[in-house]
């Protein structure tokens, strides 16, 4: 397999990246770890004439308890045992991404912005040409939802749900300077399923910031997939919060792997704050989340099963939530 020709850019500072990104708007992709982008390029999926490699931008590297550089590799987070102890739910998610070889190159930012997936999209040019191209690449129709005017490909990152429940913020550099926004606001539910974020031309995801959590916060990420390695999530459920049998002090729940974007369910969890977290409350929450999500048939496991598992995985995530040693 081969990559079509492109021009490779290797900026070394964030400012340089933003300048390049502004200049090349619409004609480039960022290259982070490459483990998602390059397979797509080899299959000639939306390949661009320019690649801006972020490899050499020092500021994007590194991590601390409260900041993850966008180019920090997943394997480096995984290897940091202290970080693992303090961020249990996030560590669950990181350790379940793809394979060790993918995590060795794959990055935090790359996983947050991983392309959506679909049986009818993640195929070779030949395969797609034989069926007729779809609206996500080279065509204008959807093979999953007939008459669809938007794309239903599935959001397949593991980190996003786990970070959403930690109230993570993303730091974005753009032509008009730096800004911070909640991770949830990075994803744009108003999009067509193809454009999925609120990143503007010239924007660069610089880092993820983790605000301090409440004392005694617990968290868990649970991933549904056929095999314990390789597979993208068929469902990912993240919970985080501080609770005991008396009272919920804080609570977040997010789901990924079933729709075009990861979703947080604050309208269901906020009313639980101040109330006791009874098994019945967890069940009601699980049932309601399950009722709301709408997977389509574009991954390995059938959508009715994936949906049914939402409830099970929510209940289990609560049951298995572990406390991080530093709040």
């Amino acid at each position: 397999m081969h990559l079509d020709p492109f021009e490779l850019h290797r900026p070394t500072t964030v400012d340089e990246v933003v300048r390049l990104a502004t200049e090349l708007a619409g004609r480039f992709d960022y290259l982070a770890g490459g483990t998602d982008l390059l397979p797509n390029y080899k299959m000639h999926l939306n390949a661009k004439p320019h690649l801006v490699a972020l490899e050499d931008v020092r500021e994007l590297r590194g991590h601390s308890d409260s900041r993850l550089g966008a180019m920090e590799r997943l394997a480096d987070l995984e290897a940091d045992r202290t970080f693992g102890r303090t961020h249990p739910g996030l560590t669950d998610a990181i350790g379940e991404v793809a394979t060790p070889l993918v995590r060795s190159s794959g990055t935090v930012g790359g996983n947050l912005l991983v392309d959506t997936r679909c049986f009818f999209f993640n195929q070779s040019y030949f395969w797609r040409s034989s069926l007729g191209f779809c609206l996500k690449a080279d065509g204008d129709r959807c093979h999953v939802v007939p008459q669809a005017e938007r794309c239903y490909a599935t959001f397949s990152g593991d980190l996003a749900p786990a970070l959403l429940v930690l109230d993570a913020e993303v730091e974005v550099a753009g032509p008009s300077g730096r800004r911070r926004l909640p991770l949830g606001a990075l994803y744009d539910p108003g999009g067509d399923g193809i454009r999925r974020t609120r990143l503007a031309p010239g924007d660069l995801l610089v880092a993820v910031h983790l605000p301090p959590g409440p004392p005694g916060r617990r968290a868990r990420y649970k991933k549904l997939r056929v095999r314990p390695s390789y597979d993208f999530p068929e469902l990912g459920v993240a919970v985080a919060g501080a609770w005991d049998s008396e009272r919920v002090r804080s609570l977040r729940l997010a789901v990924g792997g079933v729709e075009t974007l990861p979703r947080r369910f604050d309208d269901l969890t906020d009313p639980l704050v101040g109330t006791p977290l009874t098994p019945e409350a967890v069940n009601r929450l699980a049932d309601e989340v399950q009722r709301r999500v709408r997977p389509v048939h574009n991954t390995f496991l059938p959508p009715d099963y994936r949906r049914r598992m939402v409830g099970v995985y929510v209940r289990r995530a609560f049951a298995e939530a572990r406390e991080g040693s530093a709040g």
């Binding site: 490779l8 290797r10 290259l31 490459g34 483990t35 390059l38 397979p39 690649l51 490699a53 490899e55 394997a75 060790p100 070889l101 993918v102 060795s104 190159s105």
Partner: peptide, 13 residues
């Protein structure tokens, strides 16, 4: 020293 998928690594990098 890091195990890496050479099929998904641009040689120039």
């Amino acid at each position: 020293g890091r195990p890496t998928l050479s099929c998904l690594t641009l040689a120039r990098l």
